[in-house]
């Protein structure tokens, strides 16, 4: 089967600063992929470009062979696209909002996700704790039925019980053919979940390797493998 995501020679600058340079990446269908890199390596920028939130003028990115960024936006469910509603709506109102906004949004799935994540539809968003807000973002993102999910640091600053709930939701709700790209700087959080890892360093993809190859052939855990990319230059 053809790749879900193909990126050819992508470069991107912002405010005269080069963030990504000649980046190449291919992702297949049906996998969970870890996107690793230090703070400022360009993980979020890459996700915004894939999702079509930032414009890639050279059409270097294609999803299902679609390069148009406006069309791509509809093919990708991205955690960062959650938000921007007015006032302090209750959670069920937010469900209705996205149900109207996205054709692929499934309200039944959304409600099941809420209940799995112990969120009440009657809670108001401004009254949610940081962890519960993260859970809501995950529920909205996974309630869309699409081929590519981009989860940007979904475990940042949350406790281990919440993390486990979010991981269960990903396992349970990811459509079989869909691919999830999840960025994290604590690899250990998600190591058991990954089919492969992509490491962003020096503005491009420095490595892309299957989790089993890292463990079986290199005899390393994923965290060590990742850290070794930085150790070499110390």
């Amino acid at each position: 089967m053809a790749n879900l995501l193909t990126i050819n020679h992508l470069s991107y600058s912002r405010n005269l600063q080069l963030i990504l340079k000649d980046l190449n990446l291919e992702l297949p269908y049906g996998q969970i992929v870890g996107l690793l890199g230090t703070n400022g390596a360009g993980k979020t920028t890459l996700m915004r470009l894939i999702a079509g939130n930032y414009i890639d003028r050279k059409n270097s990115i294609s999803i299902n062979t679609e390069t148009n960024s406006a069309v791509r936006k509809s093919l990708v469910s991205f955690t960062e696209q959650v938000g921007g509603w007015s006032g302090h709506p209750r959670i069920f109102k937010i469900g209705n909002f996205y149900d109207a906004l996205y054709e692929d949004f499934n309200l039944t799935t959304f409600n099941q996700l809420l209940s799995n994540l112990n969120l009440s539809p009657d809670q108001r968003v401004n009254q949610l704790s940081k962890g519960n807000f993260r859970k809501l973002v995950i529920a909205v993102t996974l309630a869309r039925q699409t081929d590519l999910y981009l989860l940007d640091e979904p475990f940042d600053g949350i406790d281990s019980m919440t993390r486990k709930k979010i991981i269960s939701s990903i396992i349970q709700w990811k459509p079989e053919n869909a691919t999830v790209l999840v960025s994290d700087h604590h690899v250990g959080d998600i190591a058991n979940l990954l089919d492969q890892v992509v490491i962003i360093k020096d503005q491009h993809v420095a490595a892309q390797e299957a989790a089993d190859t890292i463990r079986e052939t290199l005899g390393k855990d994923i965290e060590t493998y990742y850290e070794d990319f930085y150790r070499e230059e110390l």
């Binding site: 049906g30 996998q31 969970i32 486990k164 991981i167 269960s168 396992i171 349970q172 990811k174 079989e176 058991n192 979940l193 990954l194 089919d195």
Partner: peptide, 13 residues
């Protein structure tokens, strides 16, 4: 999928 959930690992694995 149930095994994947019980063990908190990827379905492919």
């Amino acid at each position: 999928r149930q095994l994947a959930l019980d063990l908190a690992v990827n379905v492919n694995t």
